[in-house]
């Protein structure tokens, strides 16, 4: 680990799904907070930001926006760590309490990543010595995804790639192709675990080292990333598709009219043949 220290932006998923099983929420949040503490304690220069996302909103848990801090040391711990714990707990509580029950859709992870990127960008411009901030984003996610935020995700990945920030992804439960693409594009690390009790161990073993150190570790080989696109008509993944030349919508069959941008296609004969063959 370099002596410069690094900025870790944790994006944690607080979907109500978490409360379905007993003890899950407890183990999960414990693991996240412990990992945040480990990051801060392992190097004096390390900095941290924690952003939570549920299906209603995204919120900065640390550094907290509501400033009411009691900086006294308790039970002999480092003040900073106590501060982090307090701040996260307070914000989380208000976030969970003032939720008005709506539809339980997917968590707004892409918004949280976007805010994280802006936070990193600001730290970079504000650094007086104008050193490069070694920043990375860690996404911990438990809920499933529907792909409704696709464009937001991709925009975030491409900008993260541009400013040289890796996005690490740790999933609990099921795989998510979209986040896997993000880790692959930005040079981060992707891993999916099945039991929530493994979370803390996995975080420490695989995600604690910074990107430069990670090359020297013997981590599990990355799986092949699925870069297929979903067609706009049936939302199924296709190997070969037809793309509208105006708006780049993907269709699995030849269609006479683009439903996205309403242009009528010049139906040449060869194109019709392809369409018929496929049927």
């Amino acid at each position: 680990m370099g002596s410069e220290g690094c900025l870790l932006v944790m994006v944690i998923d607080i979907h109500p799904q978490l409360a379905e099983a007993d003890q899950h929420a407890h183990t999960y949040l414990d693991a996240c907070i412990s990992f945040a503490n480990i990051h801060l304690a392992s190097n004096v220069r390390n900095t941290l930001a924690v952003i939570a996302a549920n299906h209603q909103e995204t919120r900065f848990l640390y550094p907290s926006t509501t400033e009411e801090q009691d900086k006294r040391q308790k039970d002999g711990r480092l003040e900073l760590l106590g501060l982090v714990d307090d701040s996260i707990e307070r914000e989380l509580r208000s976030m969970v309490v003032d939720k008005h029950h709506g539809e339980q859709t997917e968590s707004l992870i892409s918004g949280a990543i976007g805010r994280g990127l802006l936070y990193i960008k600001r730290q970079e411009t504000e650094d007086i010595l104008s050193k490069r901030v070694h920043a990375r984003i860690l996404v911990v996610k438990i809920s499933s995804d529907t792909g409704g935020q696709y464009l937001n995700y991709i925009n975030n990945y491409l900008s993260a790639q541009k400013i040289g920030t890796a996005i690490d992804v740790c999933l609990v439960g099921s795989d998510c192709g979209l986040l896997q693409q993000g880790a692959d594009i930005t040079g981060g690390c992707y891993h999916c675990i099945h039991e929530i009790t493994e979370l803390l161990q996995t975080l420490i073993m695989m995600y604690q080292a910074d990107v430069a150190t990670r090359k020297k570790l013997n981590t599990p080989a990355p799986e092949a990333v699925d870069y297929r696109a979903a067609c706009f008509c049936h939302r199924s993944l296709v190997d070969m598709g037809n793309v509208c030349s105006n708006c780049l919508s993907v269709y699995c069959k030849a269609v006479p009219l683009c439903t996205t941008c309403n242009v009528i296609f010049q139906t040449d004969r060869p194109l019709m043949k392809i369409g018929k063959k496929k049927k």
Binding site: I113, L151, N155
Partner: peptide, 29 residues
């Protein structure tokens, strides 16, 4: 948003994290 974020969002990111953090707006681009 502040000035720097405004520029960064429009030049590089091209999507608004505020809209992405809103349950109704995030579903429709």
């Amino acid at each position: 948003f502040c000035f720097n974020c405004d520029i960064f969002l429009h030049e590089t990111v091209h999507s608004c994290p505020g809209c992405a953090s809103n349950p109704t707006l995030s579903q429709t681009p």
